[in-house]
């Protein structure tokens, strides 16, 4: 028996919007720790890892570990029927091939339940090693989204370089080149508007902008985004989900032939 009651149902709606274009089908895993997902895109270039900790739910009952295979497009269709202020409860019985999403309006005057068919998905979990990153950049998520969108109108790939000068996003295409440098800026009043660059070593990596743009669909989840770079590893683009957990996107770099 599984019953997870999320008062801020809009978080789940936003999570789905941020992953449904990257991943078609995925297993949601439910355990005492929380509600989680790990999935790769079909070409195995990007990986998404989501965690919503059990403490973040108003009610969290998960009698045994359960993995529920869902088509994310269908799940998104159902969650779009929930109001932004609705409380969302996810329910499933042991051995059932369906999951139920219950939506309650804040004033309790409207209660809806949507039952969705589950599916069997063969998915392999990958071990994500703890890593020391050469550089970690924290910046406003809207700024990062703007940069990725702007650069993708010029080129297909972005070179992200961190030096003591700041973080540079560069692209080149048929019509020309573009470079955007963001410097550390902690003087702003609001911490979520600051840009903080921690650099152990200079690093420069190339990534496909198509994936970066897809990750920025998570922008409504957090004011800040953290970009962790190391020359031997996929970049990690992390959006913290307030008091609940995170959504992390891993993207494999483009490597010189």
């Amino acid at each position: 028996m599984l019953e997870l009651r999320l008062v801020q149902g809009s978080l789940l709606k936003k999570v789905l919007e941020s992953v449904k274009d990257l991943v078609t089908d995925a297993n949601f895993d439910c355990s005492a720790t929380g509600f989680s997902l790990q999935a790769m895109d079909s070409s195995h270039v990007a990986l998404v890892a989501l965690l919503l900790r059990s403490e973040g739910f108003e009610h969290y009952r998960c009698d045994r570990n359960l993995s529920m295979g869902m088509n994310l497009n269908n799940m998104s269709k159902m969650l779009k029927c929930a109001g932004n202020d609705d409380i969302i409860t996810i329910k499933a019985d042991d051995g059932s091939d369906t999951v139920t999403f219950m939506f309650e309006s804040p004033t309790q005057d409207k209660i809806a339940d949507f039952e969705m068919k589950l599916m069997d998905i063969d998915s392999e979990h990958l071990g994500i090693p703890e890593a020391e990153y050469h550089a970690i950049v924290r910046m406003p998520s809207a700024e990062f989204a703007r940069i990725c969108k702007d650069l993708s109108s010029i080129g297909d790939t972005v070179v992200i370089s961190v030096t003591k000068e700041g973080v540079k996003f560069s692209t080149r295409g048929d019509i020309g080149t573009a470079n955007i440098v963001c410097r550390q800026n902690t003087s702003v009043d609001k911490p979520e508007e600051s840009t903080i660059i921690e650099m152990n070593e200079p690093v420069s990596l190339t990534f496909a902008l198509r994936y970066m743009n897809s990750f920025t669909k998570a922008t409504p989840l957090a004011n800040s985004v953290t970009i962790s770079l190391s020359s031997e590893l996929p970049v990690v683009v992390e959006y913290k989900i307030a008091e609940m957990g995170y959504i992390r996107f891993y993207l494999a770099p483009k490597i010189e032939d």
Partner: peptide
């Protein structure tokens, strides 16, 4: 030119 690598090159299956 640059070649796209994959996640499975870096992270192994559990």
């Amino acid at each position: 030119g640059c070649k796209q690598s994959t996640i499975t090159k870096f992270f192994s299956k559990l």
